[in-house]
Amino acid sequence: MGSISLQNVSKNFGGVTVIPDISLEIEDGQFVVFVGPSGCGKSTLLRLIAGLEDVSGGVIQIDGQDMTRTAPAQRKLSMVFQSYALYPHMSVRGNIAFPLKMEGADKETIDKAVNNAASILNLTDYLDRKPRQLSGGQRQRVAIGRAIVRQPKAFLFDEPLSNLDAALRVNMRLEISELHKKLKTTMVYVTHDQVEAMTMADKIVVLNAGNIEQYGTPLELYTKPANRFVAGFIGSPRMNFIEGDEAKKMGAHTVGVRPEHLSPSKTEGLWAGTVGVAEHLGSDTFLYVHVDDVGQITVRASGDVAFHSGETVYMTPMDGRLYKFDAQGQAI
C-alpha cells in the first residue's frame, strides 16, 4: 500500500531555494496531481519523492516508513519520465522486464508479468521491437508497462504527455485514468496543464514558487479557490479579475468571476461593454469585451449567441459565483 507523507520538506540547489517548506499527505490509492507554472518546483518535488534528489531538510515517509535517505531503487516506486527514458538497446519486452530482472525474479514470473502488462497496454504485437521502432504513444505505453510490472507502492509521472500531439494526449489521459481505476495504486502526476489536472486527479496540489497554494479536489479548487493564484490558474478560459473602484464597491480588493459565470444580455446588466472579438465555436461563444474603467472581460456563453464585434453587451455575474480577494490575494 502506498501512502506518501512529506513533512517540512525543503530543497536548495547551491544557494537557491527551490522548495522552502512543504508538508503534504497523499493517501493510499489516490491520484494526486501536482500542477503549477513552469519553475514552480513541481518536478523537483516529484524527484524528491522518487529519491533522485536529496532533500535539504524534512522527512519523506512512504507507507509510514521513513525513506528520506533511502536510495531510489529501494523505495519501491515507479516513475514514468517525460522523455519516456526507454532503454534504447533493449526490446520492448526487455524494457518491461527490466525492473523484475533487477529484483531477481525468475523467468516464469517475468514472462507472465510482461505478457500481462503488454495485454493491458495493447503492446503484445510489439514486444520484440526496439523503442526506436515505436510511435510516441506506443513508447509512452512501454514506459507505463515498465512502471506497472513491479507492482510499486506508487507511480510517479513527470509530465508524461507533454511530448504527444493533442489528439493522442486526450487518449493517453483516458488510458492512465482507466489504469488507475483498475490498479487502485497511488499515483502522483506532475503537469503544467490544468486540464489534465482537473480531468484526472482525485486531488490537486497547486504549486507556486515552491509553495503549496491549495490542496483539494478539482471541484473544490474550482468552486472555492483559496486565493487569487489558484482562482486564476484553474479554469479555462481564465477567471476575470476586476480591481479598483468596481471591486471596492463590492467590499474587496479584487473580485473575480469566471467567463462561464457571466450572463450576457443585449438590454441590461451589471457591467456594460463593447464586444471586441467574438469567437463562435458552435458549442460555445467566447466574447472579449472592453469595459470602461474595468478592462477586458471574457464571457463564455453556451451555444451560439448572436453577438458581434462592435456591439454593446451587458453582463451580470450569476448568483454566488463572484469571488472576493483581499489585498494579499487571499479569498474573503
Binding site: 533522485l52 534528489e53 536529496d54 535517505r69 531510489p72
Partner: peptide, 8 residues
C-alpha cells in the same frame, strides 16, 4: 543534479 549517494 544528484543525491549524496551518487556523489559518494
Amino acid at each position: 543534479m544528484a543525491t549524496q549517494q551518487t556523489q559518494t
